[in-house]
């Protein structure tokens, strides 16, 4: 276990270093932030002053060197646009995104797995066919359009839910949380559903395929022959065996939901990290984009590690120390 962890750590450091170079070079190759940020009224002199203030007059390698030097001390730079610490800016948006992502994850698991198992156990029933047809819709309709339709339906026509924004928050340990107030929850519902639709469809498909495969296997037949209650066979023996692919995919998707919920956050004006990323890209706020992507890389590494650990719990045959990946 320890060997495995150490090896993973080494790999991770390499990935982080490679990403730092790629991200920095990539982001710095686009446009010139000053052209976007400065008032058109500014003359050449003011423009040069602003370029010097933001350190953009230095050659790229020197800017990169400064970035690395600061990054090693935990400072990922200062936002050009907001003039605040880039990492702090992103982290201040993290709670809003996290609560949305976790609510969406709950939807995906608690709707997706049971529905997928029903579709897998009774593939030819009306229920099974309806679920599969529904999941195709969830897959193929664009996220943006789904969001707009949800707003149109629930906010504009029925006027039961708010169209966007975050609503009331409660301060818990200095962090504003929405899910503790009724108003906050009502604001969260639509974006969470929007975010969850695609993931739920994905989970339904995975659970269905897994269930169909597992229910034909010898151990299920044996359990049935042994006279186990069908309920126990489904909920213990089949469920446990189909969870591995579901956990793998959801792990990756959770990362995606946290880091790139851009569409949902934009449509619902949800003040999360995804919206910050897209705004920062448009304004060429390089330090924020770089810090964001670095944070994302680290987050994915951690999630993948957690997923590997979960395998071990779900399937005792998997021994992490033997893994060579």
């Amino acid at each position: 276990m320890l060997v495995y962890l150490l090896r993973r750590l080494g790999q991770s450091l390499f990935v982080v270093a490679a990403m730092a170079v790629l991200v920095f070079v990539g982001v710095y190759a686009i446009g010139n932030p000053i052209d976007i940020m400065i008032s058109p009224d500014a003359g050449q002199a003011e423009m040069e002053a602003a370029i010097a203030r933001l350190g953009l007059d230095k050659p790229m390698w020197e800017q990169f060197f400064i970035f690395i030097q600061n990054a090693l001390q935990g400072d990922l730079g200062r936002s050009f646009v907001y003039s605040t610490d880039a990492l702090g800016l992103i982290l201040s948006k993290l709670p809003a995104t996290l609560e949305l992502a976790f609510l969406a994850l709950l939807f995906a698991v608690f709707l997706g797995v049971p529905l997928g198992m029903i579709a897998g156990l009774k593939p030819n029933s009306i229920a099974g066919k309806t679920i599969m047809a529904g999941s195709i819709m969830g897959f193929s309709l664009p996220n943006f359009w789904q969001g707009m339709m949800l707003i149109l339906l629930f906010a504009v026509i029925f006027k039961v839910l708010p169209s966007g924004g975050r609503g009331d928050t409660v301060q818990v340990f200095g962090v504003g949380l929405s899910f503790l107030t009724l108003d906050g929850l009502s604001h969260m519902l639509l974006p969470a559903v929007n975010l969850a639709l695609f993931k739920t469809s994905l989970v339904i498909r995975l659970a269905r395929a897994g269930t169909r495969e597992a229910s034909l296997q010898d151990y299920v037949k044996f359990a049935r022959a042994k006279g186990l209650a069908p309920r126990r066979i489904v909920l213990v023996h089949i469920l446990k065996n189909i969870l591995i692919p579901v956990v793998t995919v959801l792990g990756l998707e959770l990362g995606n939901m946290i880091a790139f919920a851009v569409v949902t956050e934009t449509v619902f004006a949800w003040p999360g990290m995804g919206k910050l990323l897209i705004d920062s890209i448009q304004l060429l706020d390089r330090p924020v984009v770089v810090a964001y992507l670095m944070l994302t890389v680290i987050m994915f590494i951690i999630i993948n590690l957690a997923v590997d650990m979960l395998y071990c719990v779900l399937d005792p045959r998997v021994r992490l120390s033997e893994a060579r990946a």
Partner: peptide, 18 residues
């Protein structure tokens, strides 16, 4: 003041009375 940068959702917020 609520920043709603995308056009569609901004119109929807008005129509919904938000």
């Amino acid at each position: 003041f609520r920043p709603i940068t995308s056009d569609g959702p901004r119109v929807a917020a008005l129509l919904a009375g938000d």
